[in-house]
Measured scan of single mutants.
Amino acid sequence: GALPANLDDMKVAELKQELKLRSLPVSGTKTELIERLRAYQDQ
């Protein structure tokens, strides 16, 4: 599914939920979580 547009405004817990939905690792800082989601979306 498409990512929420406001990733930077989301809480870390919400970002981790998005990562879990995509079976991605949820470790790292908020910035790393956002980068991981964006990289996944670009595939």
Score class of each variant (00 low, 15 high):
M10K: 07
V26M: 10
T31E: 12
N6K: 13
R36G: 07
N6R: 10
E14K: 06
M10V: 00
Q43H: 10
A2K: 15
K30T: 09
E18Q: 05
L21W: 05
D42W: 04
E14A: 09
N6T: 12
D8E: 15
L3A: 03
Q43A: 15
T29P: 11
Y40E: 13
A5R: 12
K20V: 10
S23I: 04
L7S: 02
E18L: 04
E18H: 03
P4H: 12
E14Y: 07
I34S: 07
K16W: 01
K11T: 07
K16H: 13
K30E: 05
E32S: 06
L15N: 01
D8C: 13
T29C: 06
Y40W: 13
L19T: 03
R38M: 09
I34T: 07
G28N: 00
L3C: 11
M10E: 00
Q43V: 15
V26Q: 13
T31F: 05
V12T: 15
L7W: 03
P4S: 14
K11H: 07
A2R: 11
P4G: 14
K30Q: 09
A2T: 13
E35L: 11
P25K: 08
L7C: 07
K11P: 07
L3E: 10
Q17Y: 05
L15M: 02
L33V: 05
S27V: 05
E35F: 05
A5T: 14
K11C: 08
K30Y: 05
E35P: 02
M10P: 02
L37V: 05
K20S: 12
G28R: 00
K16V: 08
R36W: 01
K30S: 06
R38Y: 09
D9E: 15
Q41L: 12
K20Q: 10
L7R: 01
A39V: 14
A5V: 14
R22H: 06
L19D: 01
E14I: 01
I34H: 07
T29Y: 03
L24Y: 00
L24Q: 09
D8K: 10
L21A: 11
L7E: 00
M10N: 03
A39W: 12
D42T: 11
Q41R: 12
D42F: 06
L15F: 02
R22C: 07
L15S: 01
L21C: 06
K30V: 02
E32P: 02
L21R: 12
Q17R: 09
S27K: 06
L21Q: 12
L15T: 03
L15E: 01
I34D: 02
N6G: 11
K20Y: 15
S23T: 09
V12Q: 02
V26A: 14
T29K: 09
R22A: 09
V26G: 10
A5H: 13
K11Q: 07
A5L: 11
G28W: 00
T31Q: 08
L21G: 09
L37E: 02
T29M: 03
L24M: 09
A39P: 13
A5D: 11
I34M: 08
T29I: 04
E18W: 01
Q41K: 14
P4M: 14
Q43W: 14
G28E: 01
E32G: 01
P4T: 14
A2E: 13
Y40P: 14
R38H: 06
A2F: 11
Y40N: 13
D42L: 09
P25T: 04
D42Q: 09
L24S: 03
T29H: 08
A39F: 08
R22L: 06
T31D: 11
L3D: 15
D9W: 08
L21H: 11
M10A: 08
L33K: 04
L24E: 02
K20C: 15
K20F: 07
R22Q: 09
K30N: 04
E35V: 07
A39Q: 14
D9H: 12
D8L: 15
K11W: 01
L15D: 04
L3S: 10
G28A: 00
S27M: 05
Q43R: 15
L21E: 12
E32M: 05
D42A: 14
R22V: 05
D42C: 11
K20W: 04
A5S: 08
A39L: 13
V26S: 10
E14H: 13
M10G: 00
R36K: 06
L3I: 13
Q17G: 07
L3H: 15
R38E: 12
E35K: 11
L15G: 02
S23E: 12
M10I: 05
E32V: 09
M10R: 02
A39E: 15
L7A: 09
R38D: 02
T29A: 09
V26N: 02
K11D: 10
S23G: 15
D42K: 11
V12S: 04
R38A: 14
K30C: 04
Q43T: 13
S27A: 14
S27C: 06
D8T: 08
G28D: 01
L21M: 15
N6I: 09
E35Y: 13
V12Y: 02
Q43E: 15
V12I: 07
D9V: 13
G1R: 07
E18T: 02
T29S: 09
L33G: 06
R36S: 05
A39Y: 13
E18M: 05
G28Q: 01
D42Y: 04
G1S: 03
L7H: 00
L37S: 03
K30W: 01
L37A: 03
I34G: 04
M10Q: 03
Q41N: 14
L24D: 00
L24H: 00
A2L: 14
A39M: 15
